[in-house]
Design a binder for these strands. Sequence first.
DNA 1: GACATCCCAGCAAACGTTTGCATTAATGGG
DNA 2: CCCATTAATGCAAACGTTTGCTGGGATGTC
Lengths: 334, 334
Amino acid sequence: MPATIRDVARASGVHISTVSRTFSAPHLVNAETRSRVLATAESLGYRPNRAARALITGRTHNIGLIVADIANPFFPPMIKAAEGQARLRDHHIFVADTNEDALVEEDLVRALAKQVDGVLLCSPRMSNSLIEQLSREVPLVVVNRLVAGLPCVVMDVAGGASRAIEHLVGLGHRELALLGGPRGSWTNREIRKAAIAAAKAADAKLTVISPNPPTEDGGLAAAEQVIKSGATGVLAYNDLMAIGLIEGLDAAGVRVPADISVVGIDDIASARRTRPKLTTVANPTSAAGRAAVDMLLQHGDDRRTTAQITLQTELIVRDSTGPGPHRARSSGKE
Amino acid sequence: MPATIRDVARASGVHISTVSRTFSAPHLVNAETRSRVLATAESLGYRPNRAARALITGRTHNIGLIVADIANPFFPPMIKAAEGQARLRDHHIFVADTNEDALVEEDLVRALAKQVDGVLLCSPRMSNSLIEQLSREVPLVVVNRLVAGLPCVVMDVAGGASRAIEHLVGLGHRELALLGGPRGSWTNREIRKAAIAAAKAADAKLTVISPNPPTEDGGLAAAEQVIKSGATGVLAYNDLMAIGLIEGLDAAGVRVPADISVVGIDDIASARRTRPKLTTVANPTSAAGRAAVDMLLQHGDDRRTTAQITLQTELIVRDSTGPGPHRARSSGKE
DNA sequence: GACATCCCAGCAAACGTTTGCATTAATGGG
DNA sequence: CCCATTAATGCAAACGTTTGCTGGGATGTC
């Protein structure tokens, strides 16, 4: 029903190739013809069919972006940054949400594969080997995970987690807890390793409570376990869980930071607005989104660059952490 | 580089049409041939090109979903509900964010047009006439706006706003304010009309402060104007603005609900977790997402149904509203 | 044994574009 | 005035599929 290139050609008395060139290579067609074609195209309401075009050029000018959970406030800034960067490069971003489900994730990559020039796989939940396999079907850039041989952009969550633990220890906490995130998350493993190492180095006890859904409810539900663990300082997989945890502790009559100190990760917008304001590890999500788009787009030029970039994180101390039962040794010699 | 149907045909010694049928109409091909084709397809890593298929079948099994701002917590539940419903119907959802920009919105609809079977236009910011024009290029379902002649799903925000105003008046507030949302929002106009009517009916004064960005910052920035208006009860365009407003009032030393009562709209997840807990008008966003998908999909069957459905809203009274300076008259005769 | 039927598979056109090559007309140089 | 160059357009193949039609062989019926 919609007008095709052939309709326009017929109506303006030229060959379809001339119509095609009018749109994709205007300088190759006579100014007069061009304006005539343009006029009839306009009157017929003709729009080039991008899918058909992509079939032959091999480029869709679209980028797929897959996230684990669109409701997680961690992602929107990244998505928006990616969209902005894509717009600059004359591309569009199509977002899809996997519901934290590895199967859905695979299905979505395949569905997107031929309709986009590449896919930004953010916080994937599937296995490395599957990611490698999929990367043979469609150009992939992995965000929040390191996969050998593939272009990746990650944040230094390990460094962030270490600093968070050191911060707690520095405040005098010796009994710590780590509120882990979802199974399958690379970030979760990194945080875990780093937290364990940092706790060991500081001679502090660390109870790992894992896995948990990376949501407020996940944090809330774990409050009881945290209390039972005897920890006075806890690091959560993300801000959402930290906020949920604080709520759960509050409901149980445990005060933050007076009784227990809590630090989150991500520095989502609302971390600044909770009470107490959340101490957290800030992640450069916007920069990550931009970098991912750039990597994908330049990846086309020189094949197999497979750069892997790591963006720095930063500990932001606010009001959800306070002095622990053990006085910090720093009052002495240092 | 990826294997095509032709490669599989060659490798398994059959015609391409047989390969095609092996995937899209298995019952038409001999079981033995089928398994042979399947095997070589597997070994070659062949995946049908959905774009090429769509070119000829006219169906992509994809649905576009366009929202004004993916960072607004109002949308994710709707998106997720739509995704779930789409999955049930064997379709995929591609989400795009317009940044509250009508131009981007138009651009996105056009970009999506030929790659999806239809577009769910949620809270559009562009004009009705443009929407009508675009609906001739791609099947559209409009959410959160009534457009004559097009399938729409809206929520009864007018009713919700009226009830909110009545609630405030009932508490003894006579000086009210409406914190308006963005220009171009149908919902905003509906709320405004309903609030003005309800205030007039109750003989209360209503100051309209508009337009504002529909975000926490938008609410926060308007706090001063609200205070200056002398209002003791205010209705905000959405919860985000209400939360920002409360924060702004708090910063100015104005207490909620002791000095000023605030009611929001949407009942986003965090409205239950703020302090004070937010009184708000709940919107059935998930139901809206599901309904929109269904309308789009069945729209294909019988043309020009253009049903328009309205979902009910509900006032949820929590802690951000309290008694006003004027005692409710209900103490007397009623 | 002749005929109708059915199952499979091949053939080729179609979907809406792009693009290398061929063709034509116009221009400029000597 | 001839030839070489350039500009503008047409031609047709290609992209990766689907699908109506055709035909050949096997089967079943009388």
